[in-house]
Design a protein around this nucleic acid. Sequence first.
DNA 1: CTGAAAGCGCTTACAG
DNA 2: CTGAAAGCGCTTACAG
Lengths: 332, 332
Amino acid sequence: MTSERVTMVAIAQAAGVSVPTVSRVLNGRDGVSPRTRERVEGLLRERGYRARHAQHSALIDVVFPEITCAWETEHIRGIEAAASAAGVGIVVNTLWGGGDATGQLLRRLRGGRTDGVILAAQSGTDAMRTALSSLNVPVVALDPASPVSAEIPTVDAANWAGGRSATRHLLGLGHRRIAMIAGAPNLRCSRTRLDGYRAALDEGGVAYRPDLVEHGNFDFGSALAAGLRLLDRADRPTAIFASCDRMALGVYEAARRRRIPIPERLSVVGFDDLPGASWASPPLTTVRQPLRDMGGYAAGALLSLVRGEPLTTPYVEMTTSLVIRESTAPPH
Amino acid sequence: MTSERVTMVAIAQAAGVSVPTVSRVLNGRDGVSPRTRERVEGLLRERGYRARHAQHSALIDVVFPEITCAWETEHIRGIEAAASAAGVGIVVNTLWGGGDATGQLLRRLRGGRTDGVILAAQSGTDAMRTALSSLNVPVVALDPASPVSAEIPTVDAANWAGGRSATRHLLGLGHRRIAMIAGAPNLRCSRTRLDGYRAALDEGGVAYRPDLVEHGNFDFGSALAAGLRLLDRADRPTAIFASCDRMALGVYEAARRRRIPIPERLSVVGFDDLPGASWASPPLTTVRQPLRDMGGYAAGALLSLVRGEPLTTPYVEMTTSLVIRESTAPPH
DNA sequence: CTGAAAGCGCTTACAG
DNA sequence: CTGAAAGCGCTTACAG
């Protein structure tokens, strides 16, 4: 490793050809005889040639606040598939990981090493967003925590419709005392799902009762605590709609602790349809967000922005759908 | 977007300075007056300057066969944290995603756009591995499916010890009819965990019974089926050790279907300690693999290889540890 | 703190 | 199919 960097001239000399010929081989252009090409390729390998300058990166950056569960994973899968099909790689960044992710990303952008950025969840700090816009870098927001400036194309899920369909399903089964464990109230998706729940209740002629609404943090522990509070009430709800699958699992555990069988004595509905939803016992009825498709769509939109194509739809809301499994049943 | 690429000369002209000055600003070097720096930075932003050549990539590639569950996610988190702390970004690749990931990766490597590669799980096809070695690219294997050539530094988990400690735990609780649902037999980790199970049985003076060993695919469905077969036996086991957490959840579902309560009538132990293990009902007793640390270690090793430092330990096995939760109890 | 000059690694016409 | 030459975008001494 103390050796000098291998350059094209070194390869050319060793192969007894000119530098342009080596360049042609490297870039897979024709106009090189098979024999020459082979010899040069051999040398390239042997000496471990690595280009000094990258010319066009064919890379996009994805930034998450942090990676906590399958939610991010599903997005990554969708983005990776779409990007990879287009021949571009993805760089994944985490804002709260300790390193100076923002600085690195900006440096990469400045250095022309990446072509665009997908900002997932609440991931764009204001500082970062202004930096991005001043750099003229194509940006797409994926499932933003709060409304994003109109200039940034946004991909979202139909949260309102999802919250409504979950609640309608429970209503249709005959439930009347339906509790909800909502997500953090500062996130847009939490509020929207809660609105969907209220709308369904209204339509069903069931009065909205604020005391049946708990707030969690989209995590297991907060939902376990909220579930316990709900199940310990005298007028215990017969169904609980949790604002994400992980919180639904918290409700499962609360029910197990209170020896309340699901779905016989308690119906539970989640939101997301992460892979774990179907691995729960009983398999979880939940509102499916097409996370992977959302990621794929965001990547596609970003890539066309990178190509300089005008964006037709600046805001896309992708359909959610109820997946009925075994955690819901008519009230006992 | 039809505009010409913005070059440094354009910026220099607009700012009324020389090209070297712009270069200094771009690279954050000193020897530029604050006023000049500011003016140049403003222009850089305004015109959306993006470098034509990247010089040093500060990027590493991680390749997985595919991304299926939290297993990959945990590795990614560990790798991302370590890489990010060192100021380098990570590119995540998926081999079975449809796109030509191998080709892209190789192109990126050739183009000098990435500095090294982490091959996770069974992800290195032979073709890829030879290509990598002929390119002289630093490579580290993470949790390889099969023994890797001695030249590639490898990070692994103590699978044997893990399988043994899971089984010893059950033995210690008084179980004698302990079944195992092993992973796919062609994977090294599957065989090693099974060996650990056998070793513990031997030490405990309990005869190994091949009929109590089922083989799954590390997925939910195969474990559900295997669990059902096991639970439908006349001499039903009192405990089942599943070779990964996802398969343990399959056993949970099998037990639910047969109305066998966990842990009262059946103890279950998993392997991995993915986040979902503690979100199961009851929370799952499992063998913890330090997935994140393994990823971090692999990234660190790769980075020092990239720096040209000699590698001290070519093979590292990281400790596994039993995490006792609520899915295990003495047999009834 | 700044720029003219030389240089680097590579690519692009062009000529043969 | 190949190379001499010009050129590109950038960086690196060096001089002031």
